[in-house]
Design a protein around this nucleic acid. Sequence first.
DNA 1: GCCAACGTTGGC
DNA 2: GCCAACGTTGGC
Length: 160
Amino acid sequence: MSRRLWLVKSEPSEFSWADLWASPGRRTCWDGVRNYQARNFMRDGMRVGDGVLFAHSRTDPPAVVGVAEVCREAYPDPTQFDPADPHFDAKSERDAPRWVMVDIRAREAFPSPVSLTEIRANSKLARMALVQRGQRLSVQPVTPAQWREVLRMGGLDAHA
DNA sequence: GCCAACGTTGGC
DNA sequence: GCCAACGTTGGC
């Protein structure tokens, strides 16, 4: 089974690519996801070694800015149990955690970030979840062809 | 900061 | 189990 490919979104004001790059080991836990579909992708789909496009949302311009990889598979997200945390979920129980997270590690920044506008303008990427109308998923699957195209646009070899 | 689109919640 | 109300997301 070959590795799968994903895209994650983050608001730079919350957690940016630079924050990831500056983190110990250039890795972080991807906590705070509170959407079932996104959770299911993390829990059921993400495996160590999977490729991850790191995208900035709610910024100007929204863009894919770097390549990362999954370095730990899904485990319970502790913020769901912390009443002081904005992502606290009173309905989640410790023996049956509702929310999980994975760890990701930065691999390479794009020499030139690939903006949402550029992605929209590329017909090869018309089916990317990122450009579907009303799409809000913060964790999305990416096809190998989409992966190669985005990397090419950003100036990275497809091996990344 | 606006607001359209979406997901979740809860009364019935 | 419907669906209106509500909260959130995220491009613009």
